[in-house]
Design a protein around this nucleic acid. Structure first.
Lengths: 132, 132
DNA sequence: TATTGTTATACTCTATAACTATA
DNA sequence: TATAGTTATAGAGTATAACAATA
């Protein structure tokens, strides 16, 4: 429950009024940023949405200037989505806000508690390792 | 990021194929469970949805047998939603699954790491205290 | 003939506006 | 006349089915 609350709150903190993307579009943009130019089919598979939905999501991201669609020159059936500088800036803005929020909150803790969190973090990550 | 991943994974773990509720319906049911018989208006306010949406959400929960609508005898304009035994069981099933998953994962950790998590938990909770 | 992605269409969820029933 | 909730209707977002382009 603590993890759920913290996640919701931090996610909310990254948002700016009038600048939100739907959860799907945001997730797709993050995946496009991380997995470089990626085919729409692969992107749909990774994000667990159907191809027609991904067509629309990428069209919207392109409309906003956050991503571009590039047709593969060797197989012109394939289209790849890539992030734009504006898309990177958009994601960075959210991260900056979330980081600032977390920094403020962590600074209110005692040095002992801060050290405790720092040691606990790798354990939290280990909790999901070898996912099967 | 670790918190986000853990939250998503644990949430997913509580789901059973063919037994899912939308996020709104799930949140409403949890609030109905916690805040007892609650008027639809209050419920809509707490959940940040509009009254017509809450009418539909509660209608769906009632259809599934997870909640009931009870008209206030002293002011018959007012309807309150209450959880049913089936609703409680539904929520309990999800919690049981999430608990089982977390238990399995925590048991794979060393006793030292388990103790570390136990001490870090109240710090995570303190992070969101005095929310302003 | 198979594959990648798109267009056509339908369904779900939510919102705003208009309405009903109580008070 | 005001309030609680519902019904009517419209706008997102997603899915399945049918299609177009390319291999």
């Amino acid at each position: 429950m603590a993890v759920a609350r913290l996640h919701r709150r931090v996610r909310h903190e990254g948002e700016v009024a009038g600048e939100e993307l739907t959860a799907s579009s945001m997730a797709a943009l993050v995946t496009i940023e991380r997995n470089g130019p990626i085919t729409l089919g692969d992107l749909a598979a990774v994000e667990h949405v159907q191809p027609p939905s991904m067509t629309r999501i990428v069209a919207r991201l392109e409309e906003l200037g956050y991503a571009t669609r590039v047709v593969d020159p060797t197989d012109r059936r394939v289209a790849r989505a890539a992030i734009t500088p504006a898309g990177r800036r958009f994601l960075a803005r959210g991260r900056t806000r979330r980081d600032a929020f977390l920094t403020r909150r962590v600074e209110r803790l005692s040095p002992q508690d801060q050290a405790l969190l720092e040691r606990a973090l790798p354990v939290l990550e280990r909790l999901l390792e070898d996912d099967a």
